[in-house]
Amino acid sequence: MITPHRLSVKFYFEELSVDAESFIPVFHRWIREDVVPNELLLDVADYKHILDGPAILLVGHEADYVIDFTDGKPGLLYVRKRDLGADLSNALDTTLSQALNGVKLTESDVELQGKLKLRTDGATIVLLDRLNYPNAASNGDGVNTAASAEAQLSDSLAALFGADATVARVDNDAREPLTFELRAPSAPDVDTLLSQLGTGN
């Protein structure tokens, strides 16, 4: 399937005992120390004044890392914007490995260590491409892209997160991007996931 314009994945916090503002110096340091492989980090944007939104953004050229409180559910949102790969499957691999790398960096950061934990047994995946992946029953030409995407995501994610992993399309507003929920009760830890994706240490 075609590469979406953007693809995002959000992992949720299991514990979070620091406020959003604490991520600002951390993200600035990440930029200074160039800690993310294969990505150019640019700046930090502070939107903590917005209720239940993207509070702090680490803005990059290829991707953004967001401490996101949308719908009152705090998590680390990774938005892949460029160089996603040749197709949806590649895009998913790239996005997941970089997002999981972000999870690992966050949990192990010297200033954040022990103050937060992200869970891998669930995630939200969004295809930010209303042209190629409309959030509709069909594309108008009878093709159900959403169903095809769901099938592909299910296959890819089950292979990674365990056979009992399920992917379900979120019944959201048609104006919102096509969104899926991953449930993975037997999900391995971050290192194992990264290793399976071929990007672990």
Binding site: A45, D64, D129, R130
Partner: peptide, 15 residues
Amino acid sequence: LDVLAQVADEYSDGI
């Protein structure tokens, strides 16, 4: 407003 919202999340930082 609908379209502004959509272009914001597909092309900018969603703000």
